[in-house]
Design a protein around this nucleic acid. Sequence first.
DNA 1: GCCATTTATACTCTCCATGAGTATATCCTG
DNA 2: CAGGATATACTCATGGAGAGTATAAATGGC
Lengths: 318, 318
Amino acid sequence: MAGALKKDRATGSANAITADLVAVLVAVTEGEPKIMTIANDGALPSGPFEFAHRSLQTGLRAWVEAQTGHPLGYVEQLYTFADRGRAGDAKSPHSISISYLGLTREDKVGQGFEAHWSGWYEYFPWEDQRAGLPASLAKTLASRLRAWAKSAENTGLQRQRWQRAAITFGLDDREWNEELVLQRYELLYEAGLIPEAVRDGAAATTVIPGKPMTGDHRRILATGIARLRAKIKYRPVVFELMPAEFTLLQLQRSVEALAGRLLHKQNFRRLIEQQQLVEETGAIAADTVGRPAKLFRFRHGVLAERAIAGTKLPLSRT
Amino acid sequence: MAGALKKDRATGSANAITADLVAVLVAVTEGEPKIMTIANDGALPSGPFEFAHRSLQTGLRAWVEAQTGHPLGYVEQLYTFADRGRAGDAKSPHSISISYLGLTREDKVGQGFEAHWSGWYEYFPWEDQRAGLPASLAKTLASRLRAWAKSAENTGLQRQRWQRAAITFGLDDREWNEELVLQRYELLYEAGLIPEAVRDGAAATTVIPGKPMTGDHRRILATGIARLRAKIKYRPVVFELMPAEFTLLQLQRSVEALAGRLLHKQNFRRLIEQQQLVEETGAIAADTVGRPAKLFRFRHGVLAERAIAGTKLPLSRT
DNA sequence: GCCATTTATACTCTCCATGAGTATATCCTG
DNA sequence: CAGGATATACTCATGGAGAGTATAAATGGC
């Protein structure tokens, strides 16, 4: 039956490649999103998929524990990358990167590892819009993007470039869309405005703030942030990042930290409560300014009760 | 800087593996969703990722064109699988499958290829709920699932199994959720109710209707259907599957075919029009019964104009 | 002890998208 | 010309989301 397949298949190891497993491991501490980094904050935890690994996830867990001492909890696959020329050195062997998103808490850090928690906005300063953009960054960013658009050959292409920049970065009175993390990074890469682009051969220009990473790790990080920002809207994944008990404001601050935007307090609470995602513990927060808040815990039951998925189709009842 | 990485990296080809590229290529013809199959309808188009391929997508396009004569248009990555024991023979080399979803139209089929368009509901009969479930299937399915739940060791596990079945299959007066394609397939696999499970070593039981596929191809297909069903709700991807001109009813029938559910006609039209996704061509459909309908075309402009992404967060304006 | 400050919590009000259904128009066929 | 079939235009009720006001309960400074 699969004859047609078999004869096309790899014979021996002519098409053998290596696969790297890469983890975007996220935590939120005191209202700041953090990611686990190694190699002097220049890389994400990663390692090759080996024959000994029973599955991709198993391999990933092994590497992350070995490099960071941190056990992996919630994990989901992100994307598989393989473009050459993005890997740092073009002569690298045929290698692909299979990336994962992991959610956890910052506690229980292992000792004796060269892993650190780094703020993710160090790598993507423009993604933090909670206090608006730092005035300096906002100005340089927009002018650099305009210069890039202008540098296109013809006016058609120029307009096209600017439209793309305006949409992804919310310029020209457009709305900021926090989910377009990857699109923004890709655009900056194409425009040669980040160190990785220069490293990979782009014309050397003045570069925009934001720490670079090895290989395509910052691109993978962008993918992870984008996925997480999209997912918190329709799945209760924030709770993987919260302590067992928390106040509603702490919950809100965490979501705001991830989304990079401020939320409307009253409406946020209404949303959480009507979805019955949390229940009161009975206890009350201590050591606070202002009126003390009730403590809540996540209702794990909801995960089993509902198969949460919003339909946006105008279904018919007949 | 990346020293810590390098010393962990694969040395030589000790960790060399092979990667298969697999395509779920979808078209909709006369209100029926089709997928491109090869090997006597038992496999999806696929082939190994080779050193000559410049990127994963390039490799995929090469294989699909070679095997089906059909050029690939819209493509997006689905998932990367690697579990052993799912591949058919457990002794297979360490191999992973990188899967893609492609959208196209059924026309322009190449000659001299052993590829076919197969209805996707042949592989997933229970996913077509447009006319309700075929009475026979509905009855057997529910009773088999109940038997599987009952076969658990203790009552706790039994209840847990039944709850899972009820949620994924919309039993016990629960709502049917068309997006849970993969969850349903995985459950049937675990329950040993499909041929692939028996092939991989499950206890031989009477099996449920639905054609099997090589390796984990049916699982990949389930992933593709699920992704497409989710995506048509928030991205205008249906148009990749439509001819240049179409009536609103044809469009509705296509969405219904993909979703496996019937839609409310008037509300569907309101939705399409208010989103300004289409514009009239001025022409009118010929060869129809009933009042002839206006023909529409997709407004490609919307893709550039809007960065479509629905926020579900209670944003603050300050 | 009073007051400014800070946070928590409870409501209100408006607008609009969505679900559901009714009414009318326009074609074809016998 | 009736009847069947489809297209298209409205109506109406409901509920969720955006935005804002009002009140409660703590702290610290004076």
